[in-house]
Amino acid sequence: MILFLEQGLNGLQFGLMLFLLAAGLTLVFGIMDMINLAHGSLYMIGAYLAALILGSTGSFLLAVAGSLAGTAVLGMLLEISVLRRLYSRDHLSQVLATFALLLIANESMRILFGSQALTLNPPAVLSGPVELAPGFFYPAYRLLIIGVGLAVALLLYLLVSRTRIGMLVRAGASNREMALAMGVNVRALFTAVFGFGAALCALAGAMLGPLLAVEVGMGEGILILAFVVIVIGGIGSIRGALAGAVIVGVVDTLGRTLLPMSLRTVLPPTVAGNLGPSLASILIYVLMAAVLFWRPQGLFPARG
């Protein structure tokens, strides 16, 4: 039971961080109709920036803030210099161009910081566990991540559903041509959305940095997961991204613990030991394929 709870929370924590990536990705995908494979690179750059700032200032808060701001600026520069030219192109060109950006980002980081993984330590205050219920301890830092993730989700919800800029974003996601025709300054909106998405990536990178290794290529695995999330949730939908992210996070984390355990009860241990992890890793892709097959527009479609 304790294990179940703990893994459930771990899944939620991972899912919320996935949501930070998926939110930006789904907006870029939904509004600009653009496949951005370099989104994971912004996450990596955010983590590197955080590690760099933490190393020189020693303040975790400053590291997160600096990495957010730096990555947002970088994201906007990227949008203005390269990505803007790709909106009108087909998906193939976008895939190639952003794949090129991914290679450039990876190699630049390798040149600047070497192949060795950097360490990003969580603040000392949060390094210990917290007793959530009698006898149930949970790491404080992971709780902080859950808190930050929920806060950002709430903030995004308010931003998208209550503000003027949020309205423009929704208009762009549900019908881009119409939004254009109604005189929305789409160029500025796109740049802003992209910068915001980049900042969310950096937040995820900086927060997850202490749990995972800050290294070249860290963005690729999570990028694919973010794509799974937005496909499950529905492209262009923030609500869908949140739901999809939590589903993917929880299914993946619980699957990794529970599947091998439950398989062991029906199969010989060697077979279960082989089969369990493999089944667990493909679980979310099966989920994604199933969603695409039966509900290609996703669970929470953005377009009516």
Binding site: A97, A100, L103, E107
Partner: peptide, 13 residues
């Protein structure tokens, strides 16, 4: 890979 990325980007653009 840096050079490769730059060339690919140039090709697309």
């Amino acid at each position: 890979q840096l050079g490769l990325g730059l060339v690919l980007l140039a090709v697309v653009l």
